[in-house]
């Protein structure tokens, strides 16, 4: 899994993930979100367009991240989840909690 973080104004962190987001890489996803919060970027946009595989462990990391950013007054939103990730979100009824947007700008319009 490749993971890159870009900081935007207004506390927005754009986290782009590539490869597999599974049991092996879930911990690194959590860490990336934690460090965004630590650097005062609690509005996290997770770009899932490059994710080839997402499973329940990866999803668990996103839920855990969502709870952490909300506790810090921010939010976690998804950007363009790839087809397989979309399937997992639908299957688990998580689409309403982890909302998807087309761009980071759409996800956090005030940024």
């Amino acid at each position: 899994m490749e993971i890159t973080v870009v900081h935007h104004p207004f506390g927005v962190a754009e986290v782009t993930v590539g490869g597999r987001l599974n049991m092996v890489t879930a911990a690194r996803m959590r860490e990336a979100i934690e460090s965004a919060i630590d650097s005062n970027h609690p509005n996290v946009a997770v770009d899932l367009s490059q994710v080839v595989f997402l499973d329940s462990s990866g999803l668990g990391a996103l839920v855990s991240g969502l709870k952490a950013v909300r506790a810090s007054g921010g939010d976690l939103r998804l950007v363009r989840p790839a087809e397989q990730a979309q399937l997992v979100l639908e299957l688990t009824n998580m689409g309403s909690v982890l909302k998807s947007y087309d761009t980071v700008g759409d996800a956090f319009p005030h940024a």
Binding site: D55, S56, S57, L59, G60, A61, V63, S64, K67, V88, L91, T92, N93, M94, S96, V97
Partner: peptide, 19 residues
């Protein structure tokens, strides 16, 4: 059934069964 949306775990077996 899927667990509560705020749960971080417990989706593996329901996913298997749904698919």
């Amino acid at each position: 059934s899927m667990p509560d949306q705020w749960s971080e775990r417990g989706r593996g077996l329901p996913i298997m069964q749904a698919l």
